[in-house]
């Protein structure tokens, strides 16, 4: 259905969809600078969110799986999962309030002596999305750490490797599939989300573009064609992830 409607065209005079198959929508996407800019921007946002989430999730998962005592561990996991219980919109509006002018974020930066105003910038969107998808990244990484048998670490140490070497050569390669698995969530969810960019920020991303074309401009054929951009990106991403063994880690 999506594929079929992406091949139709909108008669610009009548505003009616003409059910004639053609590749003109795809030609527009490839040649139009707007779509390329928005696609690149969305990719950078999704990558930024994913990198930030991995950077946060990795030490968090490591601490929960390896260092925390048996009593602390369930509590930590509960804290990580708890935000998932709250409504999505509640969390988005909370972030809108946090980053708004004269909000808590502003106050914090003022105390730190920094002249930063997040407001409705892309940085606010980046922070909000990173917060939203963090649990989805932490859990697979945590599971990956849990799945490395202690005897591997003992064997490495027994063979002469110090902690750092063991981490680099044994733990990290074994945890990597879990990290990639987690990144699938943060990346794909960031790629498709349009509510958070719309509510927290002002910048147009792919999701907002599709929303505007389908809802406001009534150009469903072009919206459908644009919807294929994140799908193609995710297909490539998943192929790479599968090659890295991420699906076994799920």
């Amino acid at each position: 259905m999506l594929l079929a409607s992406s091949l139709w065209r909108l008669n610009e005079l009548s505003g009616q969809v003409e059910h004639v198959a053609g590749l003109q929508n795809y030609r527009d996407i490839v040649t139009g600078p707007l779509y390329r800019i928005v696609t690149r921007r969305t990719l950078i946002l999704a990558a930024g969110v994913t990198i930030f989430d991995i950077a946060l999730a990795f030490p968090l998962a490591y601490y929960a799986a390896r260092i925390a005592s048996a009593r602390l561990r369930p509590l930590l996991l509960l804290l990580i999962v708890m935000p998932l219980w709250a409504n999505y919109l509640v969390k988005v509006f909370a972030w809108k309030t946090i980053v708004a002018g004269d909000g808590p974020a502003d106050a914090l930066f003022r105390v730190l002596g920094l002249h930063i105003q997040l407001g409705t910038s892309v940085w606010s969107v980046w922070l909000a999305l990173s917060y939203l998808w963090l649990p989805f990244v932490v859990l697979p990484v945590y599971a990956a750490f849990e799945r490395v048998p202690p005897s591997y670490l003992e064997a490495s140490s027994d063979l002469g490797a110090r902690s750092w070497m063991t981490f680099r050569r044994v733990t990290l390669p074994l945890v990597l599939p879990g990290v990639v698995a987690g990144s699938i969530f943060s990346f794909s969810l960031s790629l498709g989300d349009y509510l958070t960019p719309g509510l927290v920020g002002k910048t147009i991303f792919l999701g907002n573009l599709i929303d505007a074309l389908a809802g406001i401009a009534h150009n469903q054929p072009l919206a459908a064609a644009i919807a294929f951009i994140p799908m193609v990106i995710m297909a490539i991403y998943l192929l790479i992830a599968r090659a890295m063994g991420a699906f076994e880690a799920l």
């Binding site: 048998p149 005897s151 591997y152 003992e154």
Partner: peptide, 13 residues
Amino acid sequence: VNTVFQDYALFPH
């Protein structure tokens, strides 16, 4: 000293 583990603990990767 080196150890031969009961479960071998060979690095799977």
